[in-house]
Amino acid sequence: MDVKPRQITPREQGLLKMVADGLMSEVRLRESSRDVIHRTRIIEQDLAHARSVQRFLLPPAARSGPGFIVTHAYHPFDAIGGDFLDVFLRDDGSVVVLVADVSGHGASAALTSAMIKTVFLRAAASINGPAELLTAVNRELAPGAGDGRFATAVGIVMHADGTAQLAAAGHPPPILLRKGHQKPCSSPLTITPQLPLLIDDGSEYMSDLTLKMSPGERIIAYTDGAIEAINEEGKFLEISGLQEILCRRADSEPHPPERFVRDVVHDLRQYASRGLHDDLALVCLQHV
């Protein structure tokens, strides 16, 4: 038994008090850390579920109808993305494609893209052209869009005979990929810029371009994540770089159509050696 009497000075008492306070701070800090970890796990589980839902909302990897095959790739930057793509086959044999890019990333952008899908599915069956589709999406969603939220989009309606109508709302131009060894192998399609969606609910969009595709020709619609891929030197891929990739991969056929978009995305990832820093959606609409 320790029987040595001790005296403790006020200063030593102060020191003990400081130590006790420090221990309590440590305890509280651990509690906060546990809380943060717990909440983070819940958010991660939530996001994983949301990611599954978002993938479920995507169309099948390849869809075909009389005169066309549509394939796509979708890669969100975060667990879920604000890019949107969908494909709708109509009873008259035509196909409607919409590719959109909601500003921002993450859950709020993903929710907006999910809302675009609801309008798309409702409107796609009855619209006369892609401009009507853009107008419908904008009219229904612009009033509820938050401050600063907007979406760029390109709509395409392609008929069984290869006639394609396009309209765009502030979106990068789709690329026409020719078949065989025609020169030039590819060209960006010139579409008059129109206001992005969700900014003005009174906007009326125009169908700006109609073109007749030959069998084997493809239209590639994409979001800016594709052309804003950055390489080691900090250089953007840009549209010309994407054209090079498309032509190179087109030359290396024959491939199943789904393989083509996979290979293109592979090359985009190779270019962006430090990883893509934006959502990426890419659709290939081929006339057959």
Partner: peptide
């Protein structure tokens, strides 16, 4: 709620008790 009544080694706290024994 603080989940402290668990008998497992705790280096951070043990360092404090050891140091206090030495100082006092």
């Amino acid at each position: 709620r603080l989940e402290l009544m668990i008998a497992q080694p705790d280096v951070a706290f043990d360092r404090v008790t050891a140091e206090l024994a030495h100082v006092f």
